[in-house]
Amino acid sequence: MALTRDQIAQRVALELQDGFYVNLGIGIPTRVANFIPQGIDVMLQSENGLLGMGAFPTEAEVDADLINAGKQTVTMVAGASIFDSAESFAMIRGGHVDLTVLGAFEVDVNGNIASYMIPGKLIKGMGGAMDLVAGADNIIVTMTHASKHGAAKLLSHCTLPLTGKGCIKKVLTDLAFIEIKAGKFHLLERAPGVSVDEIIKLTQGELVISGEIPEMQF
């Protein structure tokens, strides 16, 4: 079975380590915060200028001056800090963020990512995504493996305008956990009950299968 959005988030959360500073993008990545394993402390960075983002506020706690990068009202954890946008992107561009999780439309075998624009259809802008993919070393892209109509999104070459070039090394889809190295996709894990053949069928770029591919554990 393909993973649900929450299961994708849950699998990503297993990559967290105690003491990580983490930036979570909008959509599935945001849900990773709900699955932080017990005994692990992470500090969430929101690129509008907050390190130490907490849960959504109760109605009584709502503060118009305290939002996340998705413009949602949030709270702060003990030990949080606030800074301006240049400082925020100094953290990101300077490589100080330990893990970045973000979504994408397409990823290719060379680690290129397209996530911000569909010409003629969706032109909303890249926000902080270009800075995040260029600045971080440890990035996990979360996405559905293929479109609703079965069109591959893991490609030999991205077709949409790029958000970043050669910067993606790990992709977690609803079907598979994939590593990108030396110009190829490498299948690391498959979703429970999903066959290797099914993953091959829905992957357009070269996919390396070495040995028995384990099912994901949660």
């Binding site: 959504f56 506020p57 939002i67």
Partner: peptide, 14 residues
């Protein structure tokens, strides 16, 4: 006015 674009809350006690 300080308008809120995405008012997102959790239930008290959650």
């Amino acid at each position: 006015e300080k308008r809120i674009e995405q008012r997102t809350t959790r239930a008290a006690g959650e």
